[in-house]
Structure formats: structure tokens, C-alpha cells
């Protein structure tokens, strides 16, 4: 049996994948049979103040804002989905909210396979590719043999 906190962690993970996904990538993976839903909060563009910490670990400070679009909707069965995605793409926020809602229904496993896994894989691949290029620029130090060591 899964606990509430495990459920929340799971939901948190998929919402993150949806938020970070490229809008086009999510749009291309949306299921053809989208259920009827009502918008509780129509897609709305706004900002979130991003905070850092003094010296990386100290008191918080305001670094600057980021554009975010949010949306909330309800399926006919009453399930509520939320989308909070970076950028200003209304479709992205609505689609993220719809996937969030469907992930709480019995279609969850199908959605996980068809939508979330491909998005997560694309993201992982992009991260690995960038990390691999960075790794190639890692400095390998070597010490020159000094005369007196001979």
C-alpha cells in the first residue's frame, strides 16, 4: 500500500517532468481521446519570484522572476488536475493539468507509458548529452618531473 507521502512524491515527480518538458514535445504526446473537463482556472500567465540563499546556504534573497503559466481543471469524474509550467504557453499549462488529472485516474499506467516516460527519457538524454560535453572539458592535471627528482 502506498502512503500519502509516496503518492505526493510520485505526483511531484510527474508534475516536474511536465513543467520542464518542451511544449511541443508534450503536445505531440497528448492522447487522442482527451476526456471532457471544465476549467477551474483558465490558463493564466504570471511570474514567480526566484529566490537564492546568501552564500548558497544562508538567508533567502530575491534573485529575479521567472515566467510561469498555471491552469487547473476538473474531469467529469471530479478529479482535479493542476499545471504550473515555465514560460508563457497556455496550451502547455492546460495539457500539463490534464495529464496531472489523468494520472490520478485508472488511465494512469497508460499515460505514464505513453506520455511521461518519453518526456522523462528525452529530458534525461538531453541532460546526459550536456553533462558528457562538460565532462570532456574536465582538467586532468599532471605534474612535470623536476630536475632534482631524477
Amino acid at each position: 500500500m502506498t502512503t500519502d507521502s509516496q503518492k505526493n512524491d510520485d505526483r511531484k515527480a510527474w508534475m516536474g517532468v511536465l513543467a520542464r518538458a518542451k511544449p511541443d514535445a508534450l503536445a505531440a504526446l497528448m492522447p487522442a481521446d482527451q476526456p471532457d473537463h471544465v476549467l477551474l482556472r483558465a490558463p493564466e500567465i504570471g511570474s514567480v519570484m526566484v529566490r537564492g540563499r546568501v552564500g548558497a546556504t544562508g538567508a533567502p534573497f530575491n534573485l529575479g522572476e521567472v515566467t510561469v503559466t498555471r491552469c487547473a481543471l476538473r474531469l467529469a469524474c471530479g478529479t482535479v488536475g493542476h499545471g504550473h509550467v515555465q514560460g508563457r504557453n497556455r496550451d502547455h499549462a492546460r495539457q500539463a493539468a490534464l495529464i496531472d488529472a489523468l494520472m490520478q485516474t485508472d488511465r494512469a499506467e497508460a499515460i505514464r507509458t505513453q506520455v511521461l516516460h518519453p518526456l522523462a527519457q528525452t529530458e534525461q538524454a538531453a541532460r546526459h548529452a550536456r553533462a558528457a560535453k562538460a565532462a570532456a572539458t574536465k582538467v586532468e592535471f599532471f605534474t612535470l618531473v623536476r630536475g632534482e627528482d631524477k
Partner: peptide, 30 residues
């Protein structure tokens, strides 16, 4: 920016968990 509604503030960034593309130190070689 002034036209945007503010939804809130983020949790402070965890820069220790950064996916680094560049990271240098002038004080510690190793």
C-alpha cells in the same frame, strides 16, 4: 514584468544540486 501577476515565490534554489556545465576553483586544484 510589471504587467504579470505574481503567483508567489520559489523555494530558495539548491545550487549544490546544480547540473554544472562549468565549475572552476582558483583556490583548490584538486
Amino acid at each position: 514584468r510589471t504587467t504579470l501577476p505574481r503567483f508567489g515565490a520559489s523555494r530558495p534554489l539548491d545550487t549544490a544540486a546544480m547540473a554544472v556545465t562549468r565549475r572552476v576553483s582558483a583556490t583548490f586544484k584538486d
